[in-house]
Design a protein around this nucleic acid. Structure first.
Lengths: 152, 152
DNA sequence: GAAAAATGTTGACTTTGTCCACTAAATGCC
DNA sequence: GGCATTTAGTGGACAAAGTCAACATTTTTC
């Protein structure tokens, strides 16, 4: 082990710093009447194109019953359709409707704009550095795989 | 402007990735009977050593009234003291008690251990890469300063 | 010194999330 | 096949987290 204290301190500082960045980004994603969690669900269904509730539960780490209610709400609002799976009668295949896709696109565009705004004023070089750094962090942390076990 | 689409997409992916890392870290900070937000407040008071409620409101971006209640609870539990400021009679100087400092240390140790755990299994080189990348991201994003304005 | 702004508190409320029990279907096992 | 176990989803009841508006008090501004 023997990881230097300064490294741990710097990583914790980065985490505090990035927590604030992310929370600012999250806050402004929405002028839609949907909560951040609901928006995440819409985005995830959009990315997956077709899925079942349990996929979303696992991917987004949201409680089963809570997800059930969110899906019910989105369905009631006409953003998605549920159709009982032919493979597994316990589950329903979930897909965005045209209206859901419209919201998905809107959320996507907003998120893209936020990132562009975040980088606004930085030089090409700085942007490249940030980009490369993010890829590196993700690659290295994924390599360990340890980040998603219980003893984290 | 003209920031490449792939860069924006990669940054958004990094944000999703890192959101999950942070939420896993957060979840496990506590076996204490305090919530994540309360723990953040204790940590922040500990770092600042002495502060007023409004410093915490700004630093942690928590609603004024909510903060007032959190401080009241922590005070009732004997974790901090409030003493009316001699400089500004509207405010109170907040400081951790011995008990509060004990919790602060405990939270700090847990957080350090989590980071060590997160890095567990990685090579020195990988750790160095992650560390350097984080410093670079923070430096570059802070340079812009734009990350904290309203139009993010 | 009056108007405006800042700080903190409280009551009432909404949103968000969790826990538990339950149904129904699928899976594993002999 | 038949029985036990697991998995997916739902609903009730509840707790935690956070928000909003109104207010008192003090400070700042002009």
């Amino acid at each position: 082990m023997n990881i230097e204290d300064t490294i741990v301190a710097d990583i914790r500082e980065f985490n505090r710093f990035y927590t604030k960045i992310l929370s600012l980004l999250d806050k402004h994603v929405l002028n839609t009447s949907y909560s951040f969690t609901e928006a995440r669900v819409v985005l995830e269904i959009g990315f997956m194109e077709s899925c079942i509730a349990n996929n979303l539960v696992e991917k987004l780490d949201i409680d089963r019953s809570y997800m059930s209610r969110i899906i019910a709400k989105l369905s009631k609002d006409g953003l998605l359709t549920k159709e009982i799976s032919t493979l597994d009668n316990r589950t329903s295949v979930i897909q965005l409707t045209a209206k859901g896709i419209a919201l998905f696109n809107q959320l996507n565009e907003k998120s893209d704009k936020q990132i562009i705004n975040l980088l606004h004023g930085l030089s090409q070089r700085q942007i490249t550095e940030i980009h490369a750094s993010m890829l590196l962090i993700k690659k290295n942390l994924e390599a360990s795989g340890g980040y998603c076990n219980d003893t984290i």
